[in-house]
Computed example of a mutant assay.
Amino acid sequence: MARQQPPFGRGVVSWTNVWRRACRDDEEKLRDRYPEHDDYSATNMHSLRGLALGQAAELESALGEIIRTLDPSAKLDKQTAGQRLRWVEKLVDIDDWAWELEAIEKAVKTRNRLAHNEIQIGSVWRDYATGDGGEFVPVISLLGQVDYDESDLLSDLSLMQHATLMAIEILRSQLGGT
């Protein structure tokens, strides 16, 4: 079976630009309400968000392994990371792991914010010094309605990795590690 190629290329395309490209007759309706999104400028942010979400999936898997270790009959088919965290909190001594569980909870909340908010790039038109044209220049990036940039996303990735490490510490302790 032939592999399907992404219809809009390899990258993230904003939903408004998908609409524009798929329904060219709607451009006039879209112009004022939904300005064209700068997908290219958002690429690095989408990449970092993808890495943070990938690490969040690893955190979720580590939480699942803690649960399976402490409750071998556990069925983990459809639990979210937050549900798994609550389950872990019931299985371990919360007082012994308060700091680690708090770090994991912060990571889960950050994961949800990353997954459920759109990235927007705000641009302004800058004329060329030569006077013959110009270009849109990105000036602000948003996650949802909040000013957010690549350094914020790097911090989110760091948080996910630290939370995964915290989950591993809990798991090691349950397996008799030091």
Rank of each mutant, 00 (worst) to 15 (best):
V13R: 15
T16F: 04
V18W: 02
V18Y: 05
W19D: 01
R21F: 02
A22R: 14
C23W: 08
C23E: 01
R24S: 05
D25P: 00
E27M: 13
E28V: 00
R31D: 01
R33C: 00
Y34L: 15
H37A: 15
H37V: 12
Y40I: 07
Y40E: 08
Y40L: 13
T43K: 11
T43C: 06
N44G: 05
M45T: 00
M45L: 15
M45F: 07
M45Y: 06
H46L: 07
S47N: 05
L48V: 02
R49K: 13
G50W: 09
L51D: 02
A52H: 11
A52C: 07
A52K: 11
G54N: 13
G54S: 15
A56Q: 01
A57G: 06
E58G: 05
L59V: 05
L59Y: 04
S61Q: 12
L63W: 05
L63R: 04
G64L: 03
E65R: 15
I67V: 15
S73T: 09
S73I: 04
A74R: 10
K75P: 00
K75V: 10
K75L: 03
D77H: 10
D77L: 04
K78S: 07
Q79L: 14
Q79V: 02
A81Y: 03
L85K: 11
E89F: 04
E89C: 13
K90M: 06
L91G: 06
L91I: 14
D93I: 08
I94V: 15
D95G: 06
D96G: 08
W97C: 01
W97L: 02
W99C: 03
E102C: 04
A103V: 14
K106S: 13
K106W: 02
A107P: 07
A107C: 08
K109I: 00
T110S: 11
R111A: 12
R111D: 09
R113Y: 02
R113N: 08
L114W: 10
A115G: 10
N117L: 14
N117D: 12
E118C: 11
I119T: 04
I119V: 13
I119S: 07
S123D: 10
R126V: 13
R126H: 12
